[in-house]
């Protein structure tokens, strides 16, 4: 089954760029990605630019409305994702727990819909 791991954390939480902890933090991400690739679980994974770069669009009465900022103004924001192929939720949760941001943020694990042909 395919699961998406949505990586949430508060901006400013966890190791910050330019500090001594940042190098090991990024190395841990590298190691996690490598492990997912080696075990055949990795489908995709990316980091997102900061929430400050987010823009939302919606269409009302045929008119596109564009607003600055993220969809929800919450403390914890989506910062990246992994799309993994795991044999069960137990396996997906075990992998998600290894994502470095789980130490200070939260990983939301959601199965993908399988469309019947």
């Amino acid at each position: 089954m395919q699961y998406i791991c949505l990586i949430y954390s508060a901006e400013g939480a966890g190791p910050q760029r330019g500090t001594a902890d940042f190098g090991p933090f990024m190395q841990a991400y590298g190691a996690f990605t490598a492990e997912m690739q080696e075990t055949g679980r990795f489908i995709a994974g990316d980091a997102l630019q900061s929430v400050a770069t987010a823009t939302c669009v919606s269409v009302k009465d045929g008119k596109t409305i564009t607003t600055d900022g993220p969809f929800a103004e919450t403390k914890e924001q989506l910062g990246g994702y992994y799309l993994l192929d795991c044999e069960s939720l137990d396996d997906a949760l075990a992998q998600a727990a290894k994502i470095p941001t789980a130490q200070h943020g939260r990983i939301e694990v959601r199965p993908l819909v399988v469309w019947d042909n």
Binding site: Y3, E87, S88, L89, D90, P111
Partner: peptide, 14 residues
Amino acid sequence: RAAGIPYRIPETSD
């Protein structure tokens, strides 16, 4: 069903 919660005895570590 949708999230794939398995019907099994958990791994020793869990």
